[in-house]
Design a protein around this nucleic acid. Structure first.
Lengths: 217, 217
DNA sequence: CCATGGTGAGTGAGCACTCACCCACGCGTC
DNA sequence: GACGCGTGGGTGAGTGCTCACTCACCATGG
């Protein structure tokens, strides 16, 4: 029941904590490969190299496993973007926004298979929503809007609606990630081309900045 | 096995076609309320007012029910946007883009619960992807980009990347719809305020057009 | 010696789907 | 007009399967 959070410099895992970590890794891997609905307790146990019963020594139920995967294995997008306002005035706005794209798209790509399960079942969604009340998905564009406000205060971008602008960029990332998942393996080739994400970031930010009219940087 | 497509002016439904329609309505309703995973064959039958066995007189399996709901009950977003290029040069670009938002957001909002189930299971997704090879989700922003190209040819908008610009707008709609589903019932109040969608359309398009710099209309 | 972490073998519930059967109705035949 | 009857549309009662989860029991190290 120890609330581990992240584990940096905690030494090699041993005993209970080790299999606990293995279970989370296995669950995350399965969700990414065979999908949430095929990520059964039996599959997770097999992938983690332990018995099904062992899962329940470390997690109350299957739902808690997924919640923990979400909290302990997902990249921290909101936190990463929340650091941006402190960097306002340094570098170029273009660089910062492209960096946002490069972080946001993989984050959403990884989150979609799990979020999909939530969307398909309102009660799971409600439970999950309650657990992250102060870190919901709308905070991403809100924090980006904060950054844009900071840059606007510094006179580095034009006087446009920061919330709407942030929504445009985050939305593009969100949709892009969806397309990557949807067409995984086959489909429109330009979605999975190597270097495609960097091109996407450059073109999208350029199109967005056309409106913001950088006055510096 | 008659491939009905849409049924306009076909008179009141009767006999088999009637219960078939009732099943599709029931399935669509359940997906929207209790979610895809609780939309079991038993629930669908109960909601449609028939027996579970009756479902299988009209549909091969449960998956076909959902595919039919998607094809016969969902609004046709791609087609609606494909008509836009013909309207290039008429009215204002702003009006057309706001109209896109007002159609796209409800479309995505309705699609998310079903699409969520697909994202959670790659094999279902692959099957579905194969069935709509010429109408996949990337066509929406592609068709919008076609419209923007048409307007650019007419000199009504500036010389920006039409694909990236379309992706920004569609992405914002996509993300907005996701937020509406995610926070259904409770959450950030401004997402479900009456008139919120119109405001969103106006602000988003204005932020986008800041970059496009209308030269007319 | 006992808490911690592990196991193999269940268990009941819920799922998609099937089966044997039924009934009403259109229709060619007497 | 009565009649057999095939067929489309419907049913209640299963069937087998998979799922999340549990139970009695075991090992081992502080």
């Amino acid at each position: 029941m120890t609330d581990e959070g992240n584990r940096e410099g905690a030494g090699p895992l041993t005993g209970g904590a080790l299999t606990r970590a293995r279970v989370l890794d296995a669950a995350a891997r399965l969700i990414g490969t065979v999908g949430l609905v095929k990520a059964t307790t039996k599959q997770i146990a097999r992938e983690a190299g332990c018995s099904e019963a062992a899962l329940y020594k470390h997690f109350r139920d299957k739902e808690e496993i997924f919640v923990r995967v979400l909290r302990e294995r997902a990249p921290r997008l909101a936190e990463a973007i929340a650091e941006l306002p402190a960097r306002a005035g340094q570098g170029t706005v273009r660089e910062h926004l492209e960096a946002v794209v490069l972080v946001a798209v993989p984050f959403y790509r990884q989150s979609f298979p799990m979020a999909g399960g939530l969307l398909a079942s309102p009660e799971l969604l409600a439970a999950h929503r309650r657990r992250l009340d102060n870190a919901g998905p709308h905070h991403v564009s809100s924090r980006l809007a904060d950054y844009l406000r900071a840059e606007r205060r510094l006179g580095r971008i034009a006087d446009v609606d920061p919330d709407a602008t942030a929504m445009l960029l985050i939305g593009a990332c969100f949709h892009r990630a969806f397309l990557e998942v949807f067409y995984a393996g086959e489909g429109p080739a330009d979605v999975l081309r190597p270097g495609a994400l960097e091109d996407f970031a450059r073109e999208t930010v350029r199109a967005l900045l056309g409106g913001i009219e950088e006055t510096a940087g």
